[in-house]
């Protein structure tokens, strides 16, 4: 089986969850004979290599403490590919992945399969299913090895890691820098922008009163999510207007939209229909929110909220 190189995206030395998932996926794809190499370009903090146990080999390329530039990571990855000649390179399709995967493919002259949601390895081919047109269609594609695949988040799951692999320190890549980091920022600024949040907990009138809203706020805090609301809840003054989702509020597209006590009127659905994962809690089995949701439960919000909050606090602690 082919050797696989996995590009590991770092945030202050910590591999992102998507990179870790991908590394486990690579492990499975490579089988027993293929070698898995994890490549990370260092940033401002020491790399947490303990997390990269699924790799046979970890290549750390010295980087720029000032921050990410596509040029540097492109050069580092291209050098590694030309040196190690892996059969497959896997890159998580994050913002950074989108920035470099195509560039790498062009630089090393290999085919690229993007937005992959499933991968299969043939003798000398790579087959993939790619999600396109806003998830409306899937494309079955293939190409010859060696090849590069940009994989959507959530396709693989990180599993328990076995011991740490061999760590190789590589020199800084050679390239003429034409871009320079001027500044970076990480915290989302003051003032809520619910459209920028990945996780949202939405309260509808089903929460009853302000105490119900407070319970939902506790859940949002436990989850690291923002609290949003339907229009009637905003009208009551329980939640501020800037957090209203829907026709006359904001349109959001978070990864998770947990709707509690929301009926799912068309004016509301308009604002959240495209969320990645919609979970609805509503006592009425016929509530239209269930037509839009991926998962639903018909239990009472007031029982549900504290239970989930407690469970999450337990899970995180």
């Amino acid at each position: 089986m082919a050797d696989i190189l996995v590009y590991i995206e770092l945030v202050s030395g910590q591999p992102t969850q998507a990179s870790l998932d991908l590394l486990s996926g690579a492990r499975d794809l490579a089988g027993t004979s293929g070698r898995v190499t994890a490549l990370a370009v260092e940033d401002d903090s020491a790399v947490d290599t303990a997390k990269l146990g699924a790799a046979d080999r970890i290549v750390l390329v010295s980087g720029d403490a000032k921050g990410y530039t596509g040029e540097r990571h492109l050069a580092a990855l291209s050098e590694a590919i030309e040196r190690d000649k892996p059969g497959i390179v896997l890159i998580a399709n994050s913002y950074v992945g989108l920035d470099i995967s195509t560039s790498v493919a062009a630089r090393v002259g290999q085919p690229l399969l993007a937005y992959c949601v499933a991968l299969a390895l043939g003798d000398d081919t790579l087959r993939a299913t790619c999600q396109i047109y806003g998830g409306k269609l899937e494309a079955d594609v293939e190409c010859n090895l060696p090849a590069i695949a940009a994989v959507n988040p959530g396709v693989f799951q990180a599993s328990e890691t076995r011991g740490a692999g061999e760590i190789v320190q590589a020199a800084a890549p050679v390239f003429t820098a034409r871009t320079m980091v001027q500044s970076t920022s990480s915290a989302s600024d003051t003032g809520v922008d619910i459209t920028a949040s990945d996780l949202l907990v939405c309260v509808g009138r089903g929460v009853g009163d302000e105490d119900g809203v407070a319970l939902a706020q506790e859940l949002a805090d436990a989850l690291g999510a923002e609290l949003v609301a339907s229009r009637p809840v905003v009208d009551q003054g329980w939640v501020e207007k800037s957090r209203q989702v829907g026709k006359s509020g904001k349109t959001v597209k978070p990864k998770l939209y947990l709707a509690v006590g929301v009926s799912g009127a068309p004016e509301h659905l308009e604002g959240m229909r495209d969320a990645g994962l919609i979970i609805a809690v509503n006592t009425d089995a016929n509530a239209p929110i269930f037509d839009a949701a991926h998962f639903g439960t018909r239990c009472d919000v007031l029982e549900f909220l504290p239970l989930l909050t407690e469970k999450l606090q337990g899970a995180i602690a």
Partner: peptide, 16 residues
């Protein structure tokens, strides 16, 4: 639900 969150990496990881 917590299991779904786990599977999707919504809890239990330093997802960027």
């Amino acid at each position: 639900i917590v299991e779904i969150f786990r599977q999707r990496g919504i809890v239990g990881g330093g997802r960027g």
